[in-house]
Design a protein around this nucleic acid. Structure first.
Length: 152
DNA sequence: GCCAACGTTGGC
DNA sequence: GCCAACGTTGGC
């Protein structure tokens, strides 16, 4: 099972939005970056995903969700009144993909960005790299364990 | 709100 | 294919 991390602004979609209705999957859509999209495509049902809260008061990893549906064409790219509308995409060859994710757990305490930056062994994670804006990234098993060890 | 870093666009 | 201009991201 592969592991991942996705960034989100909690005002858009937070771990609490997942926790509110733990039995219901939420579409992860609106990704409009090719590298991030390519990782989305690699996600498989059952994969675990860290939810990282960005651009907010408490920046860091807040919880874990699970992929319940692998990549499918993001419907919002075709909705003309959506902020995620992409006039250059067409239904025959959809440019953007979405996946569905469902609540798994909220971490007992948030793992802050400062904390993540201080960990030896996370240097290769794009999240902590200067200037990196990648919003969907793979997390190795070692990185995953190291991060989770911060709250155990 | 600022601004550095980055990705995308489009003229050439 | 180059690269300047532009828009966006995201920590501070």
């Amino acid at each position: 099972m592969a592991k991942w991390l996705v960034k989100t602004e909690p005002s858009e979609c937070s771990i609490d939005d997942f926790a509110r209705d733990p039995g219901t999957a939420i579409p992860w859509d609106g990704v409009r970056n090719y590298q991030a999209r390519n990782f989305l495509k690699e996600m498989a049902e059952g994969d675990e995903v860290f939810i990282y809260h960005s651009s907010c008061k408490h920046i860091g990893i807040a919880g874990i969700v699970r992929v319940t549906r692998s990549a499918y064409p993001d419907p919002k790219q075709f909705e003309t009144n959506s902020p995620y509308h992409d006039p250059k995409s067409n239904p025959d060859t959809p440019r953007w993909q979405a996946v569905d994710m469902q609540f798994e757990e909220k971490l007992p305490t948030l793992i802050s960005l400062d904390q993540l930056k201080s960990l030896t062994g996370l240097e290769e994670l794009p999240l902590v790299r200067k200037g990196s804006r990648l919003s969907v990234m793979p997390v190795s098993d070692d990185q995953w364990r190291l991060i989770l060890a911060q709250v155990e």
